[in-house]
């Protein structure tokens, strides 16, 4: 839409209106256009995951290369030093091939958990205003005077937040896995640790759904974007603090399930088969807690959106 003048005059329209098509697509496109308009938040919020992805890709590539007894071209002495730092020298890495692949998997999980926090920032920043600002600016009167269902409206809004979640949590993980697969000898990472791919997709998808739902629920309750943003951060911080406090006071680690972040860590450990007894609490409770958070969030979203459409 470049800035040029159009000379058309208004005239009767002879076409037919499409009555069947799902209408959330235009909402997603409009939402993304608005989100991409301001460059500084994009740079600030995407830079850390991008840098982390590049660094982790390099480390994973190095570990995989060392595992097959090769120092990557151009690394020279630095590669040897890194090999020492990563696990006791080049020879031992080459000698214990499977163990190194497990280390790659663990690195991917660790990377996952760190980028998920960045994805939380992304989803909160770009999703907090989606429903709150629509209400404040009266946009719902324009939307719902159209043949738009609440499902289409919510699907459009959810897709915007979820897309940033996918970019922040799933995509970096898949990039690292691709590097690991490509760097491992004879596709051995794919053969030995191939399940990491679907586990990454499952974990990233579940995390995205949980956070997107919470962000939209808070947005539907807030009267403006800044309040919604504060509400999202308050929810994640307070739920984390309270869950830790209750777990210590009552000496029952299942209380950690009150925090979506703690649930995420527990689920990741269980899903990627990591042995970390310090976090050894019931994984089913963690999954149930996530499901409950999504259920309650959507109950709030549907209730609030219904009030937007029908008084």
């Amino acid at each position: 839409m470049k800035a040029e003048m159009h000379g058309e005059t208004w005239r009767p329209w002879s076409g037919t209106l499409d009555g069947q098509r799902l209408r959330f697509g235009p909402i997603v496109r409009a939402g993304l256009r608005i989100a991409l308009r301001k460059k500084l938040p994009l740079v600030l919020l995407f830079l850390p995951p991008v840098v982390a992805t590049i660094i982790f890709s390099f480390v994973v590539y190095t570990v995989a290369a060392l595992a097959q007894g090769m120092v990557p071209a151009g690394l020279g002495a630095a590669g040897g030093a890194m090999g020492q730092a990563l696990g006791g020298g080049q020879n031992s890495l080459a000698g214990d091939f499977v163990q190194q692949l497990v280390r790659v998997r663990e690195m991917i999980v660790g990377f996952h958990l760190s980028t998920d926090l960045f994805s939380l920032l992304l989803m909160a920043w770009f999703g907090a205003g989606l429903l709150a600002e629509d209400r404040r600016s009266g946009a719902h009167l324009l939307y719902f005077a159209r043949p738009l269902t609440r499902t289409d409206y919510l699907l459009g809004k959810f897709s915007i937040v979820a897309l940033f979640g996918v970019l922040g949590s799933m995509l970096p993980g898949l990039v690292i896995i691709t590097v690991a697969v490509a760097a491992s000898p004879d596709w051995s990472f794919l053969q030995q640790e191939g399940s990491v791919i679907w586990k990454t997709l499952l974990f990233g998808g579940a995390w995205t759904i949980v956070v997107s739902s919470v962000v939209l629920a808070v947005s539907s309750l807030a009267s403006r974007r800044s309040y919604a943003l504060a509400g999202v951060f308050a929810f994640f911080m307070f739920s984390g603090a309270i869950s830790q406090l209750l777990a210590r006071l009552l000496k029952d680690r299942d209380w950690l399930a009150l925090s979506p972040v703690q649930c995420g860590i527990r689920i990741a450990e269980a899903l990627f088969d990591l042995k970390m007894p310090v976090r050894d609490w019931n994984t089913t409770i963690a999954w149930t807690s996530w499901a409950l958070m999504v259920g309650v969030s959507w109950a709030i979203i549907v209730w609030r959106t219904r009030r937007l459409e029908v008084v």
Partner: peptide, 12 residues
């Protein structure tokens, strides 16, 4: 429908 209240789609 042309609503009475001030309504717009923010950012557009």
């Amino acid at each position: 429908y042309m609503p009475e209240s001030d309504c717009l789609i923010p950012g557009q």
